[in-house]
Design a binder for these strands. Structure first.
Lengths: 334, 334
DNA sequence: TTGTAGGCGTTATCAG
DNA sequence: CTGATAACGCCTACAA
């Protein structure tokens, strides 16, 4: 309603110069305490708020941080986004969420748009983006969940170790034939999870690469992959699925073939999203500290932005087994 | 890497004034075609992009649109966000997602921050925000999913009718005792869905308000509510749950009591989110046209912003029954 | 058809 | 301690 008042209005009302107002606003320079009070009073009276756009123009920075995610519909990413949002907001930044569909063209368009808006930095989950592109935009960036390049800071989890642990767990509870529903080959964490799987089963006499099916990190893909696996190899009694979203698909796939989980088939997946608790049966999973890695990535980026740090940090968090109802020890009853 | 070039650099290279560059940039005013070409060449050569911040400062508008959602972890909202994002981006706006926890303080803080950034408009899903607050910020706004006030444009669905239809469906398949897991009382759509439920069952001889339990639109709340209901009234054979997220909770609640869905209990919920297809059993639901309402809200807002329209539009879309596996006609086998 | 210049709201530099 | 004033990059009268 009321026209926005500017720093000049405040100056006039307080009978000082705009420079003085700016000083009390930003707390730099000297200003006598009584004039400071006069200014403060004027600010309050006019309900004055500094204009961020003007500020950004002058500073070349906007107090905005963006998060790129490949798929907002995978519940993993809202959880991650939540963490990044909390941290950035707490530090006085505006948070922008960008959904990229893992499509380089969209990523570039966003980068372009954000650059024009003087965005301070980006946190990026991507398997198509390259270090060259990012550097060509000259925007501070931190990779999250998926490594982009060794000279871009990253926050991830120990995917390979976690995958090994998951598959070993299946062995420990007595599974004899363990298959894998894999994530997209071009996604670094999916590749690591596949390697972890291979680390454990590659030497088994029964093993062949036919025990691996592609699920594309999608519900539907995983359902089909699971059906294919279980049809080809009815003897499969353990399934390691590369993420929880696909884990849900795997359950449905088994169900559609009339195979009971966990009675006939144990399923373990990866991520630890909330959704996994809500399915029937609830998913046993290798849980990432989702909130922690999101918050940490934001922290690193903000530090980089504010201190103008360029040292690249590489941090890897640990995943943790959460036993729920999609797995059961052989020979044990419910 | 390369310093951002400005309109002045382009002008110099093309040997014209900045005004001319601005003209070809924005396509207004007259400019001879050969000089236009010279300018275009210079732009390309320098890889020039106009600075949005400077533009915003001049225009007082930023080409940004924000969406306020109460809970990014409820999959309904990512689906909605996706629609809004697609539409806004397609129209050249930058999309900002704000998670409010349905907390007025956070909403106000966001409004404040966005106002300072000259945001063009907001789409808001809220049950705490009031028309007065919004108007005091003087930012064009459209309410989505939940009505705020009759003088703020809104896009919603026919919640009451949809709820009636859902409950009637339960009756039609033979349910004798139908309970309701309700959404928060202060949320307008939850209130309407409750009314729709009452419309159908209020006159039944068996009915009492004890057949209604609060689920707070959360998974956990719905699980507990369902357990409470089924414990109090073991004769319940139909359950209308106010949204899908809670529908999943209801399934788990029934399961925890050893009650089989849909054999002993039919459950229908509301929303039509993807998640509902993935549960076991898959949820029967009254599906909203989620993408459509999100896109439509964006459309209305953009029109309002660009045409400086102030006419308030009220649009209500229809929901549609989707039969899946959480309901079954009495006496029928699978 | 093109150029000049003032202003959008801030901040920082430089005198006082 | 305080006040002018020149940027930041762009757009649009107004002049030519």
């Amino acid at each position: 309603m009321a026209e926005m008042s500017t720093i000049r209005d405040v100056a006039k009302l307080a009978e000082v110069s705009v420079a003085t107002v700016s000083r009390v606003l930003n707390g730099n320079g000297y200003v006598r305490s009584d004039t400071k009070e006069r200014v403060a009073a004027a600010i309050k009276q006019l309900n004055y708020r500094p204009n961020d756009v003007a500020r950004s123009l002058f500073k070349g920075r906007s107090k905005m941080i963006a998060l790129f995610v490949p798929d907002i519909m995978n519940p993993f990413f809202p959880e991650l986004a939540r963490a990044v949002e909390d941290m950035t907001k707490q530090q006085g930044f505006t948070f922008v969420l960008c959904n990229t569909d893992d499509d380089l063209t969209k990523e570039m368009a966003y980068l372009d748009a954000l650059k024009q808006k003087s965005v301070d930095g980006i946190i990026i989950v991507s398997s198509t983006m390259t270090a060259e592109y990012i550097e060509s935009f000259d925007i501070p960036a931190v990779a999250l969940d998926r490594i982009i390049h060794s000279n871009i800071s990253s926050v991830t989890v120990n995917n390979r170790e976690g995958a090994k642990e998951a598959v070993q767990y299946l062995k420990d509870i007595g599974c004899q034939r363990i298959a894998h529903v894999a994530g997209p080959e071009h996604v670094s964490n999916a590749k690591q999870r596949l390697k972890g799987y291979l680390d454990v089963v590659e030497k088994e006499e029964w093993f062949s690469s036919a025990f691996i099916e592609q699920g594309e990190y999608h519900f539907e893909g995983a359902k089909k992959a699971t059906e294919a696996l279980l049809t080809k190899f009815p003897e499969i009694d353990g399934l390691f699925v590369a993420n929880d979203l696909m884990g849900v698909g795997a359950i449905k796939g088994a169900e559609s073939l009339g195979i009971s989980v966990p009675d006939q088939l144990s399923i373990i997946s990866f991520d630890g999203i909330k959704l996994g608790e809500t399915t029937s049966p609830a998913l046993t999973t290798m849980a990432q500290p989702i909130y922690k890695i999101g918050a940490r990535a934001a922290e690193i980026l903000i530090h980089q932005v504010e201190q103008n740090e360029s040292k690249t940090l590489v941090e890897e968090f640990s995943v943790k087994l959460i036993e729920r109802d999609s797995t059961r020890k052989k020979g044990e009853n419910q």
